[in-house]
Design a protein around this nucleic acid. Structure first.
Lengths: 390, 390
DNA sequence: TTGTATGCGTTATCAA
DNA sequence: TTGATAACGCATACAA
């Protein structure tokens, strides 16, 4: 009454192991009658092929690897969170398992690849960022190991290798453009941009989307000096917002939720001041407090009622798995000769191969800021009964 | 020049496969000279045993499984983030790999266990919560599959099974007690508690810590009505804080960072009002704004300068792996007969088995709230140069 | 202390 | 269409 194996099932059914194996891996090679009989027995016995044995034979583990980065900001890493969950789910439903690992550095990550490849026989990897001359992608390509990256290799021109591997990314510029359009629709025109210091391409991309949208709307000139950079922190957001306001901005698009959070606080503060002293007019733009838009749609944004650009992390994850699975299944080279329908019918055309490089458009989640002033909502607080032991 | 195997190494070295296998798995059974020679060859060839082959033979995969919950709050799930990273790291350095999976429900989770056990041969699981009559833990115990839980099974009395399995948890009451002590040290005495509605044991535990600490400090009576509950949201925190202030609280300990965040906002708002109108006196307690303490030390808390109780998630993860590894290694039953030192010496006493059930004390991270009013810090914002293409 | 034989559960090759 | 045989890489019992 231990777990059934091919052998035990075979003797029970009085067929060869091979036949059962065929029913599983190449059903069309088995006479429908026997196939049905075997399938019934498989289901009845709850038989499941052993991955280890299968891997030993096929040299494929149906296992993908991904490095788990140390939880840095968290306010920032929220996107990776959703990505990881969706990735696990997508891998699972594609028949793959997901193995996590840690590494101290990119060099160490390569060492882990090597070990995981040799020891566990992983079939491929998912990376969560890369550069044009990334040692990791170079290593993987040289070795011929399938992989896909979440994040495009910026400035890949002149780096044929970087340009060639599969990646999925989110179009940051499209995100800030959409944010600007939302603010324009709300009646704003002096819309600022609040980015971070580091001159990385992601930040530049997001800024570009703002610039483009403002130019398209005909405000290209009005917006001089309304592009500002600060440290990517809440404090940075606050001081950046102060600067923008002093320059006449009535709304702003931020590169991150940290910045946006700081900006929102600062605006609230300025507004409180202005309502008393009457100065700092112009703060109350058409959108009121919602005139701040963040980026990444972090839980904090949701909690605070902060509008934010949402990355389609789930869709990115699903597509990454799609691409990887396609490559691992032969990727068009040894294409679908196996797609024989259960009930005959014309062989369906091989499904179109997934885009090897895909840019996904984010969308803006519009929110109304929390009215912190309002007390005693319907679900207001109550004095709790005294503590109950147990 | 393909990957070396036991056989290829053996013929190269003119020894039997068995000897090499012994060098790896039972070094003391091999003559030092040969052992050294073999080890050198192993290192030189970069030989690594295949996990699949090994698993086929030993029926152990050196693989642990954990369900990845859908990223719920994120403002709340931050603890699980750190836990997961530390878990991966600890598993890795204990020689285990970590496999992630998703499930729609606890029932589905059991189905996944079954599949992962049969197909991939996982050696054990990590759960991130459980109840006294949890179907999952019951199933695992019945099947004899090793597992450990992050989170204790509350009210396990009368549930011998729940009381028996390994778990690690954080002592929430100790956390709120520590928070109260910090506030007392700052000179506060009317310290309130702001918890969430749901009558779950975790919340009750945190409340108990506050109650206990206040009683110990001799403020047991002064604190009537200063225990309040609200929805576990920012808005809930704001209205809860308003209520507490109206009852004379000058400081408060919260059950979550969401609540604390709302409370902080509300305090800031009230204070702004009071400085103008002169009413609402008593708001400016000794600790000023820092008189709010959150729970979980979320990134948001760090970003905002909110004091918060930090769960030792990393330590919990490491201990979970320690317990699991101990069980998987024979757990005292077939204890250490294998611990022969490399250079002889007296056989060291078997290391003490890890606590099967461990309560970890959190600590308070004290922070100074962001002075949002201050502008133009040294790293202030700058007007960015116009966008650079590329 | 070292070597030999066998089997873990599967799939691939080939012959029937 | 089906079945017999070998091999994947390793560890274990046993013999030398």
């Amino acid at each position: 009454m231990s777990r059934p194996t091919l052998a035990s099932l075979a003797s029970e059914l009085v067929v060869s192991r091979q036949t059962i194996s065929n029913v599983l891996n190449a059903p069309h090679k088995v006479k429908p009658a026997t196939r049905a009989r075997v399938q019934a027995a498989i289901a009845a016995a709850g038989y499941r092929p052993s991955a280890a044995a299968r891997q030993l034979r096929t040299q494929r583990s149906m296992n993908l690897g991904m490095r788990l980065l140390p939880a840095t900001d968290g306010i920032n890493g929220a996107v990776l969170d959703r990505f990881l969950h969706a990735l696990t789910e997508a891998a699972q439903s594609a028949g793959y398992r997901l193995t996590l690992f840690c590494a101290d550095s990119d060099g160490d990550e390569i060492r882990q690849y090597e070990e995981l490849l040799d020891v566990a026989g992983l079939d491929g990897f998912i990376l969560t960022s890369s550069t044009p001359d990334d040692a990791r992608t170079l290593w993987l390509q040289e070795r011929g190991t399938p992989f896909a990256v979440f994040g495009r290799p910026w400035d890949a021109a002149g780096h044929p290798a970087a340009a060639a591997h599969p990646w999925v990314d989110v179009d940051g510029a499209a995100g800030t453009t959409a944010a600007v359009e939302m603010l324009l629709a709300q009646g704003h025109s002096r819309i600022g941009f609040l980015g971070w210091f580091t001159g990385d391409p992601v930040g530049a991309d997001r800024r570009r989307g703002w610039e483009r949208a403002m130019a398209t709307a005909g405000y290209g000139e009005d917006v001089r000096g309304l592009g500002v950079e600060a440290q990517d922190t809440v404090a940075g957001g606050a001081s950046g917002a102060a600067l923008l306001v002093s320059r006449g901005a009535t709304a702003m698009v931020c590169s991150s939720d940290s910045l946006a959070l700081g900006a929102m606080e600062k605006l609230r503060e300025l507004r409180a001041g202005s309502s008393v002293s009457g100065q700092a007019a112009g703060l109350n733009g058409p959108g009121g407090l919602s005139a701040v838009v963040g980026f990444d749609n972090t839980p904090v944004a949701a909690a605070l009622g902060l509008s934010s650009v949402a990355q389609p992390a789930e869709e990115a994850a699903r597509h990454i798995i799609r691409v990887l699975a396609y490559e691992l299944a032969g990727g068009g080279s040894l294409a679908a000769t196996d797609a024989v329908g259960v009930d005959a019918g014309a062989a369906p055309a091989a499904p179109a191969p997934p885009e090897r490089q895909l840019l996904l458009a984010p969308h803006v989640v519009e929110r109304i800021p929390l009215p912190l002033a309002a007390t005693g909502s319907s679900q207001g607080p109550t004095a709790a009964p005294s503590m109950q032991p147990r």
